[in-house]
Design a protein around this nucleic acid. Structure first.
Length: 271
DNA sequence: ACTGGCTCCTGAGGGC
DNA sequence: TGCCCTCAGGAGCCAG
């Protein structure tokens, strides 16, 4: 269920199991992900030590001496550490066995995710090189959003979900952030004031930071459990609450489709 | 340069 | 119980 907080939570959870470990085997059960998983991956990775696991946007980067394994979880992907002898389930498409007799296992029912290998600078990879800035970095603020939005006619919601502007703002947190900033999601991006973009940038940072902090609670049973993140229901102000009362003013919340994605907002609190 | 629309895929849930 | 329809947390790609 990967929005940025889930990806970051996944990264943090994998780190202690994976970094510094040697790959002992690779299993590709179904190569038909978004892009074909290279069959040569077993030859490429076996024997190499994982140097680091980092993240760019929602891409996880496993750095090896000879290149980088890039994994995206798509809409339904999850990565877990399992015992090497644990039987794979239906949608477990990819395993990377590490020398502690554990496996990094990718499950992805919808197969919108990807597993890619590059021996070049991963940030120059076509999928990464045109990405916008990270929402939790110092560069991301209201001034940046306002400047980039000049003349743009798309809705502000589609604008903050555009990965060339800022990465990692998924559909849930776009609605949540706009609610917190009091901005109507349908408003044209070029017609949002600097002051309101400052509030929006703060809201995006706050929502993502809080979700990452909450996601940490699911780390406890990271290697065994399935389990949806605990923060999911409680923290959401508008997402998934169509026709329910606004928590601020009690007006029934609206659900409508913007840019083919479900969007939730309060028509009284957001202008 | 922008914009909107389509696409990949499986599973869950609701209505009948 | 079963069938059919709609919808789902992403994001690349393409035509206009």
């Amino acid at each position: 269920m990967p929005e940025l907080p889930e990806v970051e939570t996944t990264r943090a959870g994998l780190l202690p199991y994976v970094v510094g470990r040697r790959v002992t085997a690779v299993t590709v059960r179904n190569a038909a992900l978004r892009y074909p998983v290279p069959r040569s991956l077993s030859t490429t990775l076996t024997g190499q030590v994982v140097r680091s696991v980092s993240r760019r946007a929602k891409y996880l980067l496993f750095e090896f001496p000879s290149g980088t394994l890039i994994i995206h979880l798509g809409m339904s992907g999850s990565l877990r550490i399992v015992a090497a002898d644990e039987a794979p389930q239906k949608h477990d498409h990819f395993d990377m066995e590490i020398d502690t007799k554990l496996r990094l296992r990718l499950r992805d029912p919808r197969r919108f995710g990807c597993v890619i290998w590059t021996n070049q600078d991963p940030f120059r990879h076509p999928l990464l090189n045109e990405l916008g800035i990270e929402p939790l970095g110092d560069q991301f603020n209201g001034d940046y959003l306002h400047a980039q939005a000049h003349g743009r006619k798309i809705s502000v919601k589609q604008y903050i979900m555009d990965g060339r502007i800022v990465v990692g703002v998924g559909n849930i947190y776009a609605s949540e952030s706009l609610f917190r900033a009091g901005i109507l999601p349908t408003r044209p991006a070029g017609r949002v004031s600097l002051e309101r973009y400052r509030r929006l940038a703060d809201a995006i940072k706050a929502v993502l930071t809080a979700a990452i902090a909450q996601g940490g609670t699911t780390l406890r049973d990271f290697s065994s459990g399935e389990g949806k993140p605990g923060y999911f229901q409680q923290q959401l102000q508008v997402y998934g609450r169509a026709a329910e009362p606004c928590r601020r003013c009690a007006t029934p919340l609206i659900q409508r489709v913007i840019g083919q994605r479900s969007t939730f907002y309060c028509r009284a609190c957001q202008t």
